[in-house]
Design a protein around this nucleic acid. Structure first.
Length: 420
RNA sequence: GGUGGCGUGUCUGAGCGGCCAAAAGAGCACGCCUCGAAAGCGUGUGUUGGGGAAACUCAACCGUGGGUUCAAAUCCCACCGCCACCGCCA
């Protein structure tokens, strides 16, 4: 949620941000208008309440006729207080309601435009030339290696489902182990969070807004399945005040992620690029707002380190304003080269949510200047299926066997995946 | 799932319907003492919101949400959470 005081002082900045995102600009005016009314209502209520507090005290002290008389007027005042309070509560709720619809204020450096208007920041590595053979896609390779079984996945769980078997399963463990051990080396606290969360956690992280249709909701229990461990990691410190000298607090969460993938019919229907369930190691940082931009760069660097270790060519893009999540003020995606698609495809993503998410979740820090909202940032260290796709396709040999990146060899005990 | 107990500030822990932002202790900060420290002594120490340039002032907050009352941390109801015991269970 946006800071209403900031909005009051800088309405044009917020308007420009909304415009850049292609979102409703008139919300800004609506908030200002209702906020005005809200403050008037607060004032009315508080004046009446103060009067009531004084009167109530004198009722306690009074005796006999005096008391009967006072009670009479106190009763009348009580109803007026109640009415003023109801009005105040309504306006507070309305203000909140509209303010929550506003997205985070864009970083001025974020490219303005729609999804396709991203800016490529850099290319790392060179897409491999397949001289003597036609590269196979990951579905075919997965079958040859006994690593991925999408047919049985569909039989048991429908479309966009799969089994990782044999070296596929082993590859997941290796990726996770490599990711977690490098995260621990970098100072992250490894975390296995709950994936079933309650409404405050889900709402607080901002996933029940535009992204709501992609969330699995267990109505009987009033719970949600998370689409990323960002949710339980962010909510971990919900309603807490963190000591400033402990910042940044960095967590690496390993969890299963659930996504309905509503509205993606026909997109990536083949293989495991877009699935309903996958495992992921996610980095999450709570830091001082003044440090957020640097921290964002660090997260990006750790993501790049991972891709480098996997020996996969990729590019880094600065995601355009229209394609940012509502909490992010800037986002960098890493896209790995997928040979059979002759395209770069998203494998990781890191967002700077500044204080936007923390304000909703009520996560603050305390230093000499007082108590303020922290900044939160997140970034993918490794999303398993997409990384498997990238590894299989980029490191395949003509017979369908696949070379294992050096970094993973200690975890797998082999240099090469052979056909089954 | 059943029964019982409990939820108060950074923590422990008092709290009779009005005198309660809330005793006491601990912690923390500052000061005195000291060569320095510990101990001791003294002072201070919640958050959010409204108004105000500020000093300050007003209001709200005792798990959450309702209710009773002129007045609720205190009484009533619902929910959530924690603890104990029983039942079931990987």
């Amino acid at each position: 949620m946006i800071d209403i005081k900031f909005l009051r002082d800088n309405p044009d900045v917020v308007r420009a941000s909304q415009k850049g995102r292609g979102e409703d600009v008139t919300l800004v005016g609506q908030v200002i208008e209702i906020d005005e009314k809200r403050r008037v209502a607060i004032n009315e209520f508080e004046l009446l309440r103060a009067e009531q507090n004084t009167l109530s005290k004198s009722v306690g002290a009074a005796k006999g006729d005096e008391k009967t008389k006072l009670l009479e007027s106190a009763k009348d005042l009580a109803t007026r207080v109640k009415n003023a309070d109801v009005k105040r509560a309504e306006l507070e709720a309305q203000t909140q309601n509209i303010a929550l619809q506003l997205s985070n204020v864009l970083d001025p450096k974020a490219p303005i435009g729609k999804e396709e208007d991203f800016v490529v920041l850099e290319h790392v590595g060179t897409p491999r030339e397949f001289q003597n053979f036609e590269p196979k896609d990951h579905v075919e390779l997965g079958k040859l290696l006994g690593a991925i079984d999408t047919e049985r996945g569909a039989k048991v769980s429908g479309s966009r489902s799969y089994y990782l078997t044999g070296v596929g399963a082993l590859l997941e463990f290796a990726l996770v182990n490599y990711a977690i051990s490098s995260a621990v080396k970098a100072g992250f606290t490894p975390v296995i969070p709950p994936v079933l969360v309650n409404p405050p956690a889900m709402e607080g992280t901002g996933f029940l807004g535009q992204a709501a249709e992609n969330v699995y909701h267990l109505e009987k229990d009033g719970m949600y399945l998370v689409g990323t461990s960002e949710v339980p990691l962010a909510a971990y410190h919900m309603d807490e005040v963190l000591p400033a000298d402990k910042l940044p607090l960095r967590y690496a969460g390993y969890s299963t992620c659930f996504r309905r993938e509503a509205g993606t019919y026909g997109k990536d229907t083949r293989g495991i690029i877009r699935v309903h369930q996958f495992d992921k190691v996610e980095m999450f940082s709570f830091c001082h707002p003044d440090q957020a931009i640097e921290e964002h760069q660090r997260l990006l660097q750790w993501e790049k380190d991972f891709l480098n270790a996997m020996e996969i060519p990729y590019r880094v893009i600065d995601v355009a304003s229209g394609d940012l999540g509502s909490s992010a003020n800037r986002k960098f995606d890493i896209e790995a080269w997928i040979p059979t698609q002759k395209a770069y495809r998203e494998v990781t993503s890191t967002s700077n949510c500044t204080e936007f998410q923390a304000r909703r979740l009520n996560i603050r820090f305390k230093d000499a200047d007082g108590i303020k909202a922290v900044a939160t940032l997140n970034g993918t260290l490794v999303a398993i299926p997409r990384m498997i796709v990238a590894i299989l396709e980029n490191h395949q040999n003509s017979d369908g066997s696949v070379n294992v990146p050096k970094a993973l060899q200690p975890f797998l005990g082999t240099q090469r995946f052979e056909l089954v």
